[in-house]
Design a protein around this nucleic acid. Structure first.
Length: 119
DNA sequence: TATGTGACATCAA
DNA sequence: CTTGATGCCACAT
C-alpha cells in the first residue's frame, strides 16, 4: 500500500473509465478526473492518455476537453484520424469540435454507477 | 530535492 | 469571441 496513495492506480483508473465510454459517446478529462475523485487533476488524465495513446485497447479519441474540442488530435497518427474515428461512431465533428456535445457527452459520475469501480 | 512540463479547468478582463 | 494568469498533480530530468 502507498501512504500517499495513487500513483500507478490513477493511470489505471483512467484507462478503466476510458474503456467504459460507450461507442458514439465522448467524455472529458475533467469528468474522468471527477470520477476518480480528483476534480482538479484533469491534466493528469491527459497525461495518462499521453502515456497510453499507443494502447489500442484505449479509445482515446472519445476523450476530449470540456467544450468538446479535439485538443489531442495532434497526438494521433493522422491529423484527422481522431475526428474520423468519432464520425465513424456517429459523433458529428466540425472544425475539431464535437457537435451536440451535450447530447453525446458521457459523464461517468452521472451515467456510471459505482459497480465498475475496482475500488 | 528542485524545476519544468502537460491531450485541462476555471476565472478575470 | 479572445488572451492571460492560476491551480492542480504526476512524471521526467
Amino acid at each position: 500500500m502507498k501512504p500517499q496513495g495513487n500513483t500507478v492506480n490513477f493511470f489505471q483508473q483512467v484507462y478503466v473509465v476510458v474503456r467504459l465510454i460507450p461507442q458514439g459517446r465522448v467524455s472529458s478529462y475533467g469528468a474522468i478526473g471527477r470520477y476518480l475523485g480528483a476534480p482538479q487533476s484533469a491534466r493528469m488524465v491527459g497525461w495518462a492518455m499521453n502515456a497510453a495513446h499507443q494502447d489500442a485497447t484505449i479509445p482515446a479519441h472519445r476523450v476530449v476537453n470540456r467544450v468538446g474540442l479535439l485538443t489531442g488530435k495532434h497526438h494521433f497518427q493522422g491529423s484527422q484520424l481522431m475526428q474520423q474515428l468519432l464520425e465513424n461512431e456517429g459523433v458529428e465533428v466540425v472544425q475539431d469540435r464535437i457537435q451536440n456535445f451535450n447530447h453525446v457527452f458521457w459523464d461517468p459520475v452521472k451515467e456510471l454507477p459505482l459497480w465498475e469501480n475496482p475500488f
